[in-house]
Deep mutational scan, measured.
Amino acid sequence: VCQVIAMYDYAANNEDELSFSKGQLINVMNKDDPDWWQGEINGVTGLFPSNYVKM
């Protein structure tokens, strides 16, 4: 598990995705897919595009 910072706002398009705002910290749970990582914010988990965040 690592933390990343959102570089942009992201609004989920599907129920399994994670919405976040620019500057939010996201706990990364899974990086099996290079493009879509699984993350957690405040107890909510979902997929998000890895190119929207930085380490």
Rank of each mutant, 00 (worst) to 15 (best):
E40L: 05
W36C: 13
S50W: 03
P49N: 07
I26K: 00
N14M: 12
D16I: 15
D16S: 13
L18H: 02
V4A: 12
D35H: 10
L18K: 02
W36N: 12
V53K: 01
D35R: 12
V4L: 03
L47F: 07
I5E: 09
A11R: 13
Y52S: 09
N27S: 10
I41A: 14
G39W: 00
S50E: 03
G43M: 08
D9C: 04
L18F: 04
E17V: 05
V44T: 10
M29H: 09
S21T: 12
Y10T: 01
Y52K: 15
I26A: 00
I26F: 08
G46S: 02
N13E: 12
D9N: 11
N14C: 12
G43T: 06
N51D: 13
E15I: 08
V1S: 04
T45G: 11
Y52Q: 14
M29A: 12
D9A: 14
D33V: 07
V1C: 03
K31V: 15
N51C: 10
N51G: 12
Q24E: 13
Q24W: 11
M7R: 07
Q38A: 13
G23F: 03
M55S: 14
N27I: 13
G46E: 00
G39Q: 00
Q38C: 12
V4I: 02
F48D: 01
M55E: 14
V44H: 15
Q3R: 06
G39F: 01
V28H: 01
M7L: 15
D32C: 08
A11K: 14
D33E: 13
Y8N: 14
N42R: 10
D33S: 11
L18S: 01
W36M: 14
G46R: 03
P34D: 13
A11Y: 07
V4D: 02
M55Q: 07
K54P: 02
Q3N: 05
P34H: 04
E17F: 07
W37G: 01
Q3G: 04
A11P: 09
V28D: 01
V28N: 00
N27P: 03
I41E: 03
D16T: 06
S50N: 07
N27A: 11
S21C: 10
L18G: 01
L18E: 01
Y8W: 10
Y10R: 09
N27W: 06
N14I: 07
F20C: 02
C2D: 11
V28P: 01
Y52V: 13
P49I: 02
I26H: 00
A6C: 05
P34S: 13
D9K: 04
V28A: 03
D16N: 09
Q3F: 15
A6I: 00
N42F: 06
N14R: 14
C2K: 05
V53H: 03
F48S: 01
I5R: 05
L18Y: 00
M55A: 15
S19Q: 04
N42Y: 08
W36S: 07
L18M: 10
N51I: 08
V44M: 04
F20D: 00
V53S: 05
A11Q: 13
W37L: 03
E17P: 02
D16C: 13
N13A: 12
W36R: 12
Y10P: 01
E40K: 11
I26C: 01
V28R: 02
G39K: 00
D9Y: 03
V44W: 05
A12Q: 10
C2T: 06
Q38W: 03
A12L: 02
I41M: 12
M29E: 13
A6P: 02
I26T: 01
M55I: 08
Y8T: 06
Y8C: 13
S19L: 02
P34M: 13
T45V: 07
F48Y: 01
A6G: 05
N51Q: 08
K54C: 06
D16F: 11
V4T: 08
G39S: 00
D35I: 15
Y52A: 09
E15Y: 13
Y10V: 03
N27R: 11
V4G: 11
E15W: 05
D16P: 08
Q38F: 09
D16G: 12
V53F: 03
G43C: 07
E17R: 12
S21L: 11
I26Y: 02
N14E: 10
Y10W: 11
V1W: 03
V1A: 03
G23S: 09
I41Y: 14
S21D: 12
W36T: 14
S50F: 05
S50I: 08
A12E: 04
P49V: 01
G43E: 11
G43A: 10
P49R: 14
Q24T: 12
K31D: 10
T45W: 05
E40G: 05
N42L: 09
K22V: 08
E15K: 10
S19F: 03
V53M: 03
F20A: 00
V44S: 10
L18I: 13
G46T: 01
Y8K: 15
G46Q: 00
N13H: 15
D33M: 06
W37I: 02
M7H: 06
N14S: 14
A6Q: 00
N51S: 12
K22C: 09
L47K: 15
K22G: 07
D35E: 14
Y10L: 03
V53E: 02
F20V: 03
D33G: 11
W37R: 01
D9G: 09
A12H: 04
E40F: 05
V28G: 00
N14F: 08
C2V: 06
P34Y: 05
Y10A: 02
S50C: 05
G46M: 00
D9M: 04
M29D: 08
N42C: 14
I41T: 12
G39I: 00
A12G: 09
Y10S: 03
A6Y: 00
N13P: 06
N14L: 11
K31P: 15
A12Y: 03
Q3E: 15
N30E: 10
K54D: 10
Q24R: 06
Q38R: 12
D35M: 07
D16A: 14
D35V: 11
Q38K: 14
K22W: 03
I5G: 03
L18N: 01
L25T: 09
C2Q: 07
N13S: 14
A12P: 05
A6S: 09
N14W: 04
Y52G: 06
V44D: 06
Y8S: 14
D35C: 05
E17G: 11
M29L: 13
K22A: 12
N13G: 15
G43L: 04
V4N: 02
V44K: 09
Q38G: 10
N42A: 13
A6F: 00
P49S: 04
S19P: 05
V44Y: 07
E15A: 12
D9P: 07
A11E: 15
F20E: 00
S19C: 09
K22Q: 15
F20R: 00
P49H: 07
Y52D: 02
I5A: 06
Q3P: 07
M29R: 13
Y8Q: 08
I41P: 00
E15H: 14
L18R: 00
K22R: 06
Y10E: 01
E40M: 08
E40Y: 04
D16Q: 10
C2P: 07
D35W: 05
K31L: 15
I41H: 14
D35G: 12
S19K: 05
K31T: 15
N30A: 13
V44N: 10
I5P: 02
V1D: 11
Q38T: 11
E40H: 08
I26M: 04
I41G: 03
C2Y: 14
A6T: 15
D32I: 09
W37K: 00
N42K: 07
G39E: 01
Q24K: 06
V53G: 06
L25I: 14
Y8A: 13
A11I: 06
N30H: 13
K54V: 05
K22N: 12
Q24H: 05
A12F: 02
D9R: 06
G23Q: 04
A6H: 00
Y52H: 14
S19H: 06
V4P: 00
E15F: 06
N51A: 08
